[in-house]
Amino acid sequence: MHIPDGFINVPTVVVTSAVSAGAIAYGVSRANRRLGEKHVPLMGVMAAFIFAAQMLNFPVAGGTSGHVLGAALAAILLGPWVGVLIMACVFIVQCLIFQDGGLTALGANILNMGIIACFVGYYLYQGVVSFWGERRRSQLVAAFLGAWLSIVAAAAATAIELAVSGTSPLAVALPAMAGVHVLIGIGEGLVTAAVISLVMTTRADLLQLERV
């Protein structure tokens, strides 16, 4: 879902970059207040963790393979603003070093797969948990739903940006992108739920951390 350069036009580039830069600036000041000087090494290592988790491919039907995005996972475990910062760092490295996603599209990629995915994933998880209670099963279902919707929402945002830029018509791109990612999101949801399940079993204290 990494948008390369040239697929979105200049107004879209300007708006998405401004939104992402603002969110990162606010996220940094918030992390500074809540975590103090501890946040720098912690977030560096957690960004490396998301990067490594994205390298773990699992075979899907028909010879293709998939990997997790990890935005919802980061947001559920550490909080949405920290999630945004971590994902932004991952996308900066992927753009500058692996050419995965364009330089002018960096703002759009951070907005779709960082900001939107983290906030959708986190608040859906929190909503379901507060509705169904803190039981194990409800937390796992919440993690699945949050991660699944985070992928669908990111795909929908990508389709809208492409349509605004005149690259593809909205009436086709939105249902197609969202439709494909409704399926891809199932994998993300299952893996995220499995991760939360393991963390709950082995280090439940990590789920009680203050989320930023």
Partner: peptide, 18 residues
């Protein structure tokens, strides 16, 4: 299994960060 791998990777990375 993949969830377990990513989960232990998270726990180890978090502890490493601390």
């Amino acid at each position: 299994t993949l969830g377990n791998i990513i989960g232990s990777l998270f726990v180890r990375s978090y502890e490493r960060g601390e």
